[in-house]
Design a protein around this nucleic acid. Sequence first.
DNA 1: ACCCAGGCGGGCG
DNA 2: CGCCCGCATGGG
Length: 299
Amino acid sequence: MMSTAESMADRIDTSYFDLRHTFESAQPLTFHADAEIEKGYMRYSTYDDVLQLRFFGDSRSGSIHMKSLAGMPEHCVEKEVVRRFRLNDDLPKIYKMINTDNAIGNATRHFHGMRLTLNDPWEATLCFIVSQFNNVKRIRLIVRKLIATYGMEIKDKEGRVIGKAFPRSEDLAGATEKELMECGTGFRGRYIASAAKFCTNNLDLYKLNAKDYDSLMENLMEIDGVGEKVADCVALMGYGNLRAFPIDVWVKRTLEKMYFNGKDKNIKYLKEFAQERWGDYAGYAQQYIFWHGREIMKK
DNA sequence: ACCCAGGCGGGCG
DNA sequence: CGCCCGCATGGG
């Protein structure tokens, strides 16, 4: 008789998962995935397949139904989705750890079920280079244009094109700065051209997984166009290093407002404050503070 | 028109 | 070191 686990392999039960908060939280996956939040529908490309997901329930208790368009085996689809949305993270425990005060407690309550995603290291690198001095709407536009222009076609078993993969560094390494700027990248075109060549010829991002946080950061910042903030984002969302605490303009403003009466503090000080306060889960704290801050501070 | 956006590299003191 | 500036582009 078929085991329960096998017969349910196209479905994952979830708790502490919220589709809307996760998809609206400006992470690499969400820059290019498609979602119709009200219908609980989402769709995204892996390297050689397109996955359709349907979410039922709410952030307390729900389920994700999964379908591969190119025939990925069910157990592989499940593994991919669990990994990509970090569904094995113990969110109740993490909330307990990072809810050090009412301010962040409000953020985790308001965005209950928002998950960090785990993305391909190069995907994260490219997305966050695009993100610099930019806004979320336009980041999406640029990332999608890069995929449309440079991504490899994904085909189903009948050979029909069902989507495009996120372009690898080698797919972009031949592009000129000018060509990249035609995708709307602006002054970041130079960084992308340089980073694509560097990550194809000089630095293998897929060999940095075992590195500790400090040497990972050091390696990532060798890439032209990758500074501390982008490296932190890549460490967090490309490598899953939860100690990383990227500080952008929103996180800076929000921390200052929440903990320092709005007084100006430099990045180094704030980062040490955060990593001391939230330790091994600082990255989760950051994601909630980032999104909460945008919510409460935009006029 | 003007301001801002998930920053970075380079130049200056 | 730390600070300050320009940078392409599109939306509010």
